[in-house]
Amino acid sequence: MSGPDCLDYLSSQFHIGSVREVVHLPDGLMNDNWRIEADAGIFALKKIRDVPFDLARRNLRTLSALAKTGVPAPSPRQTADADPVVEVGRDGFSLVSWVEGRHRPGTDLPLSEVTALGALLGHLHEVLNRTLTGLPPVIDVPAASVTAPEATLAQIERFLAQLATLGEPTSFDEEAARFLVERRLLLEKFADERPVSAAPAGPFGWTHGDFQYRNVLWQDSEIVAVLDWDRIRVRPFGEEAVRTATVQFGGADGVLDSERVAAFMDGYRSVIAISPAELEDAVSRLWWKRMTDPWVLVFHYDRSDHSCDDLFAPQERMLSWWTERREEVVAAFIAKA
C-alpha cells in the first residue's frame, strides 16, 4: 500500500528529503501508520485519528522532553516552525524516528522481564510528573466516573434490538448477541457492587494512557521503545498499572496469568508506592468499567469502525472469568511475586 496522497508535502514539511520506500503498517488499532524510508533516515508516519491535533502537539512535545531523559521513546520530527504535527485539510500527521524491535505479548515474557516491564511503567509515571516535561503540576485528585448499571443495560437492549433486525448476521453479530445476553445477566447479578466513591484511591498524575504490548518494542531482552503517546492524561496510577496488567497478561481465552501479574506489580511497586488497599480499589474500578463499557460494540455498530473487533471476544471472556474470581484477581495484584 502506498502512503497518503499528501506524502510529498509531508516530506517537505518535515524536511526528510526524497522518500524511497513506503510500507503501510497494518497493526495499528486506532490510527493509520506507515514506515517511511527517506534521505534523512527511517521514520514512522502516523495519520492522527483519535485525539485533537493540539493535544497531539502537546503530547509529542512531551515525548521530546522524555527522550532527553533516557526514556526509551522515539524522537518526534518537527517542521521549520517547530511544529510536530502537519495539518493537511482535515487530516493531521506526525513523524517519529523508526525503532527496530518486536512486540511481545506478556505471557511470552520470563518473570524477570515482566518485573522489568512493571518497573519501567513506574519509572514513566515518575518521570512524566517532573517539571521538565512541560506538563502542568497535578494538584486535584482526578474524578472517576462510575457508570450506573441502568445506563449499560439500556445500551445492551439497544444493541440487541439492532441485532435482531439483521437479515444476515455475521459471525461477529452472532457472537455479540450471545455475549450481550451474558453481560446483561452479570450486570443484573452484580449491580449493587459498583464502586461507591467517585474519588479513586492512591497516587495519581500524568500517565501514558495505553502502556501495553502493542506499544512496547523489544530487542532480545531489552525494551528499546515505548510507542503511541497519544493518550497522555491525568489518571490514578493504579488504574493504568492494573489496566496494563490485564491487557498484557490476559490470553485470548480470557484467563489472567496471576503469576505474571504479581511479578509485574512487584516491579511497579519498586518505583511507585501504592498500598494493597489502593490497588484493590483500582482493580475494583477497572472490573466495573469493563462490566459497563461495551466500547468495541460502540465502535463497530455506532461508528462503523471494525478495527478493534478482534478485542471483543477475549474481553468478554475475561470479564466472565474475572467476575467469577474477583478475590483471586485482587490477591494477584497485591501479592509479592
Rank of each mutant, 00 (worst) to 15 (best):
V23P: 02
L10Y: 08
N33G: 11
C6E: 15
Y9E: 15
W34F: 08
L7T: 06
D32H: 01
D8F: 10
L10C: 11
Y9W: 12
E21T: 07
S11R: 03
L7F: 07
S18D: 14
I36Q: 07
L10S: 08
L7S: 06
L29W: 12
F14W: 04
D39Q: 02
D8Y: 10
L29G: 08
Q13D: 06
S12F: 00
G17M: 12
F14N: 04
N31M: 05
Y9G: 14
C6Y: 07
V19Y: 08
R20W: 10
G28E: 15
H15S: 09
V19P: 07
V22N: 03
N31D: 13
E37K: 11
V19G: 09
Y9R: 15
A38S: 07
M30P: 00
A40G: 05
L25G: 03
I16E: 04
S12A: 05
M30Q: 13
V23D: 14
D39S: 01
R35H: 14
L10G: 08
I36Y: 06
R20Y: 12
L29C: 08
W34G: 10
H24F: 14
E37R: 12
H15P: 00
C6D: 14
P26G: 01
Y9T: 15
L10K: 10
D32N: 01
E21Y: 06
L10E: 13
I16F: 00
M30R: 11
R35A: 13
E37I: 09
E21V: 03
D8T: 15
P26C: 00
P26T: 04
V22Q: 03
Y9A: 14
W34K: 07
G17T: 10
D39C: 00
Q13H: 07
G28W: 10
S12G: 00
P26W: 02
S18A: 13
L25E: 06
Q13C: 09
I16T: 01
G17K: 09
E21A: 07
L25R: 04
C6N: 12
A38I: 04
G17C: 09
I16D: 03
N31I: 03
H15I: 04
G28C: 11
L7G: 08
V23E: 15
N31V: 03
W34C: 08
P26I: 00
I36K: 05
L29S: 11
Y9I: 14
S11I: 01
H15W: 01
V19W: 09
A38G: 04
M30W: 08
V22R: 02
H24Q: 13
S11F: 01
I36S: 05
A40L: 05
L29D: 11
A40R: 09
H24G: 08
N31L: 04
S12L: 01
H15N: 07
E21K: 11
G17I: 07
L25D: 06
I16L: 01
N33A: 15
R35Q: 14
G17Y: 10
E37D: 14
V19E: 10
S18R: 13
G28A: 15
S11C: 04
I16R: 01
R20V: 04
P26Q: 04
R35T: 07
D8R: 14
L29H: 09
N31F: 03
P26V: 00
H15C: 05
D32S: 01
R35Y: 13
Y9C: 11
Q13F: 01
L25F: 02
S11A: 12
N31S: 07
I16G: 00
D32W: 00
F14H: 03
D39T: 02
D32T: 00
V19H: 11
L29A: 11
S18M: 10
R20K: 12
I16V: 05
